[in-house]
């Protein structure tokens, strides 16, 4: 076989399997919406909120499973409730927002683990699948649900783009111009909760933060405008999802961690080599050897 054919064969072989088609489809959609929605978290310095929401979905998921309802719906409701409680604590008491997040998400997470452990004695439900993802167990129904969420999220971001840009850059200015910032913030929380829920099967609730933050952060070091960060971030997210899945298939790695390792490696490259901010190549003056050089030169010129 010629090398080109070998590459093609390498690429197409996993696609013969229906489960790989489904899981790749879901991974690609999740790669896109995580990067787009996560960009808002990054620019608003709310990365921890992504973590909080993702850990908080567990009890809702367990209760929904127990009631026989769609677990996406239960997880989504729990995620939204957790953000409401976080906001409630930090507006009604002197507790700061990050402390409120820490308290609420660990409480929800503990409750979720307790509920799932209890349920899994009698049911076919595996805690590990929610913690670390179970992309190979993606069903046709999951593909449909993920597609619905992805369309909802992307349409909402496209329609509200200019308002959300203003709000996330300058909340006070946006409010003073008459925009309903409370609603915009609530909308953003809903988008994040939806995205986290869609990502559960792919990477699980513990690693979803990486997919939310790392693609946008990688792109942020490369391009200057928010919509560019989102588009390039989505491309990075998709690339990471696909290559993570192939790594998982060929090297027999768990797929969630494989995806996260790819996106983390891409971030490292961008951090080191970005033309604008790269530690190794960027035009900054505070790189160690330039400091040293300045220091030596100033010493040398001393009379």
């Amino acid at each position: 076989m010629s090398p080109e054919l070998a590459v093609l064969d390498w690429f197409f072989e996993p696609l013969q399997f229906a489960f790989m088609q489904r899981s790749l489809a879901v991974a690609i959609m999740v790669g896109i919406i995580c990067s787009v929605v996560g960009s808002y978290l990054m620019v608003q310095r709310l990365a921890l909120l992504g973590d909080a929401i993702s850990h908080s979905v567990l009890p809702g998921l367990a209760i929904a499973f127990w009631l026989g309802v769609n677990i996406f719906v239960g997880a989504f409701i729990a995620g939204v409730i957790s953000t409401v409680i976080i906001a409630w604590i930090h507006t009604r008491s002197p507790i700061k927002e990050d402390a409120a997040m820490g308290i609420v998400f660990s409480a929800f997470f503990a409750l979720g683990i307790t509920l799932i452990t209890t349920i899994q004695k009698d049911n076919k439900i595996d805690l590990n699948h929610f913690l670390f993802g179970n992309i190979l167990g993606v069903t046709a129904g999951d593909v449909r649900d993920t597609a619905i969420i992805a369309v909802l999220v992307l349409v909402a971001v496209a329609l509200l783009y200019k308002e959300l840009l203003f709000y996330s850059f300058d909340p006070l200015g946006a409010q003073a111009s008459g925009l309903p910032v409370g609603l915009l913030n609530a909308g953003l929380m809903v988008l994040i909760a939806l995205t986290v829920v869609a990502s559960m099967k792919v990477v699980g609730v513990i690693l979803v933060l990486s997919l939310l933050i790392a693609p946008g952060a990688t792109a942020y070091l490369l391009v200057p405008r928010l919509h560019q960060v989102m588009l390039l971030g989505a491309a990075i997210g998709v690339f990471s999802s696909i290559s993570g899945m192939y790594l998982s298939y060929y090297v027999n790695l768990p797929s969630g961690p494989a995806i996260v390792m790819v996106v983390s490696a891409l971030f490292s490259l961008s951090f080191l080599l970005s033309p604008r901010y790269g530690v190794l190549v960027g035009p900054r003056r505070d790189r160690p050897w330039q400091k040293l050089r300045t220091l030596l030169l100033s010493k040398g010129s001393r009379p």
Partner: peptide, 21 residues
């Protein structure tokens, strides 16, 4: 000082925010 000036936006993006409402 209340603004994060590392936000990924250009001068044009910021001025256009005045036209959002």
């Amino acid at each position: 000082s209340q603004i994060d000036w590392t936000f990924p936006a250009t001068v044009w993006d910021v001025v256009m925010m005045g036209r959002v409402k």
